[in-house]
């Protein structure tokens, strides 16, 4: 298996609070890596450093190396191209204050695409992938901010797919969606796996079990356990805390 992302000795800190400690992690091409763990264990910070959203927060300090296809992502001054390659879905849905159509075509337009036919294709394609097309196809001109929370979350996913990322980071994407839609999107993610590498932070352990190829357990900025799902969910666990967390004893 080819390594898509290699994280080497990654340290992330806010002021003097260290949130990720000396973390090493390889993520393979076309796998779904689920990251579980209780709140405040550095999962979100880890995701945000992978597409350098940490750049926008002056208090965050990121040290170490992250290689995408073998190249250091921190080397380039301009990180916008990186963010097109590494898509991100945040836990709380954000519909940009514009029409549904403009939301989904926002990324390609910002990348300079003006071809109307191509934009229309991206619009339909991404909305279908995010299981939203049928609900909004008749009102693509409506304001995205007026959609329901669950619809906005799927819109966020559609938007993250619109710039054809190679890696998709999902940060607790199902927090605002009902179970039925969650299953729809999970099915979609299963399909997308063919073309994408997916990193998924989740609080739902069953979701990690269903979707992940491998699952990592994070606690206090460290990875306690990392193994293929068959092993981790059949009890082949090194750390007792992981076992407790999965079995619901703590967390």
């Amino acid at each position: 298996m080819t390594k898509k992302i290699e994280i080497k000795n990654l340290n992330i800190s806010y002021g003097n609070k260290i949130v990720v400690k000396n973390l090493n992690l390889d993520i393979f091409q076309n796998e779904v890596l689920a990251i579980i763990g209780p709140a405040n264990s550095g999962k979100t910070s880890l995701l945000r450093s992978i597409n350098r959203m940490t750049d926008f927060n002056n208090e965050v300090k990121v040290e170490g190396k992250i290689l995408l296809d073998g190249l250091d992502i921190f080397e380039d001054e301009d990180s916008t191209f990186l963010r097109r390659r590494v898509g991100m879905v945040s836990p709380l849905p954000v519909g940009l204050p514009m029409s549904i159509k403009d939301n989904v075509t926002y990324a390609p337009r910002m990348a300079g695409c003006k071809d109307k036919a191509e934009l229309d294709f991206i619009l339909e394609d991404c909305l279908k992938k995010a299981a939203l097309w049928d609900e909004v196809k008749d009102r693509l001109d409506h304001l995205a901010t007026k959609l329901s929370g669950g619809q906005q979350q799927r819109l966020t996913i559609a938007r993250a797919l619109s710039h054809h990322p190679e890696v998709l980071c999902l940060d607790e994407f199902s927090i605002a969606i009902d179970p039925v839609t969650t299953m729809k999107i999970e099915a979609v993610l299963h399909e997308l796996k063919k073309d994408l590498t997916i990193i998924m932070v989740t609080n739902v352990i069953n979701q990690a079990k269903r979707l992940g190829d491998r699952t990592a357990m994070m606690l206090n900025g460290e990875i306690l356990d990392l193994n293929i799902n068959q092993k981790i969910f059949s009890g082949e666990i090194n750390d007792k805390r992981t076992k407790d967390y999965i079995e619901g004893v703590f967390g």
Partner: peptide, 12 residues
């Protein structure tokens, strides 16, 4: 969050 969403999809 609007700014973050915009940065997130690669807008400068």
């Amino acid at each position: 969050s609007f700014r973050e969403a915009s940065w997130n999809v690669g807008a400068s």
